[in-house]
Design a protein around this nucleic acid. Sequence first.
DNA 1: TGTTATCATGGGAGCGTTCCCATGGCAAGG
DNA 2: CCTTGCCATGGGAACGCTCCCATGATAACA
Lengths: 338, 338
Amino acid sequence: MSTTLVEIAKQAGVSRSTVSRVINNHPNVDQATRARVRLVAESLNYQPNIAARGLAVGRTRILGLAIPMVVSALFSDPYFPILIQGITSMCNVMDHSVMLWLTEPEYERRMVRQILGGGMIDGVIIASALMNDPILDALDKRGLPFVLIGRHIAGDSVSYVDVDNKNASQEMVAYLLRLGNRRVATITGPRNMGAGLDRFEGYTAALHDRRIPFDPDLVVEGDFTEEGGYRAMQRLLPLGPDAVFAASDIMAVGAMHAIHEAGLRVPEDMAVTGFDDIPLAARTNPPLTTVRQPIQRLGATAAETLIDLIDHPGTQPHRVLLTTELIIRASCGAALRR
Amino acid sequence: MSTTLVEIAKQAGVSRSTVSRVINNHPNVDQATRARVRLVAESLNYQPNIAARGLAVGRTRILGLAIPMVVSALFSDPYFPILIQGITSMCNVMDHSVMLWLTEPEYERRMVRQILGGGMIDGVIIASALMNDPILDALDKRGLPFVLIGRHIAGDSVSYVDVDNKNASQEMVAYLLRLGNRRVATITGPRNMGAGLDRFEGYTAALHDRRIPFDPDLVVEGDFTEEGGYRAMQRLLPLGPDAVFAASDIMAVGAMHAIHEAGLRVPEDMAVTGFDDIPLAARTNPPLTTVRQPIQRLGATAAETLIDLIDHPGTQPHRVLLTTELIIRASCGAALRR
DNA sequence: TGTTATCATGGGAGCGTTCCCATGGCAAGG
DNA sequence: CCTTGCCATGGGAACGCTCCCATGATAACA
């Protein structure tokens, strides 16, 4: 099995404590001793036992990452993989590890207990929590540090990392209006998710700015899947919008399918814009105008924030908004105007 | 913080040991005592400390999952999310947890040590290991149970779960040939990955079966990304193939872009087939003929196999091949023949 | 009724760490 | 030369749990 501290100690001719000091870079160890211990540890390929250390010190350097499986978009949208990559990347830098939970409803109870009670993780990142997710209360009561990815309705008391969804959407829709579109429809995300809600609010705000009456028929709720975007667009087509703002690229792709299937052209007959700027967005036909959000940085920042929260307990909740960028491509018809 | 065994013991008026017996469902505990302890534990929301248990019993019920980040396809291909979902799903059923490592080259050394030495995980699933991945030797030497997803060249000594890539590809290409195509090209995966190699071998085997001479010019190596498929197809187009077998759906999508861009039609001018049957495959234009592999079951089986290996140390390596299914859609021109 | 087996329960030891305190050596200062 | 204090080092205790053995009570049997 694994080598232990005592083994190293024996071979280096020192005590357990001294080895521990060397491993943890404590001062007050003789240079020669330090070198000798290092050598032995290296040669035996020593690696401290995380469980034991965790027990002793009450800190495991493991972060939990919980992704609600109700987000069925997990499969079709590269959002989550990129997010995960950002998180693990930062964890590597900060010398932490990641424990992953995809919370299926039927195991939710068990998982919540495990996450909260196991004493295995120092804190947890919750990706795309629903507004009313019961885990949030439990987390709060338990005192376990946590960070949300995506704003929460109880915004002030919890830490979260998000992009400025409302503002970005508002800009996107304002841009569509400036291009001369009159009937701008939207395919929203689920309204019980922060991103879904905020992007929708950006849409209404943009209309309001221009004194354009809000038409509820031009709003269809999607679910962040391509299929959902496709079906939503089918419902919108008979109403004759001249532009549609989809709350995610993958839904925009679905919408474009529906539009093409109806024999219409993008952007000549219908401008389409998305949100996320996933890699695919640059390669659709026509390429998709969208909002770029720094997904990877979002994950990295969440991890960084959580670690900071763990290191400094009792500080104020951290609220971070990352900026987005409008990516103008052909699908919105910007080129046609020239 | 978290409640401990002793706390429960105190409140229930029994000893630490008895509580432990109740929690672990050992026999030889009085019914009444058992009930009383259960009640107290429930009311205090007790959850055993995994680190402590792991220390004591030498088993954490945590599985490691390592995905090499060199697989850049992680971002565009839903393969990994679905795989992960299969793994976590089975872990839920089997009451295990998952620790995730996306192994970036620059942290490889640290990670390998952590995975091997930490004593934190009972075993590890390696997804899409490269043929010569150094971690495999280390794993073997260390004696930590592990399961590969994707066949390894040292096939007999290690456990793996895979689909029968060679056979499936052979069938797919044989089908293309039966449809009357004469110059069938292929876009392979990286040749240092099992899936890349096996699917290519299936291609050559199918040609061989039909006594069709192998033309190395009709083989271009891709990297399992859409971009890679696109570029590979651009290189193939001047050679005038009448069909192309891409080793993944996402590369097939890229290839179709290149074909359309060149003003050719699928399947009239060029038959295209993929591999994986990702959700997108049914919704491309035209819908993609492909090989369905049970990605989720692949992950679930890997987890199940690993847990079995952990439970019964010293048994033979497990080698599992899951079956695939040919999904005939429009992109191969099957309909044209009627 | 005496002997033995069975069962419910308690307490010690140990898993591999870290932290704290004790110890002894040695240099600095008076 | 003696005191003070720093520094390198060692060992005990604790983290929360499981396992093993001991104990006493009760049941089973002769």
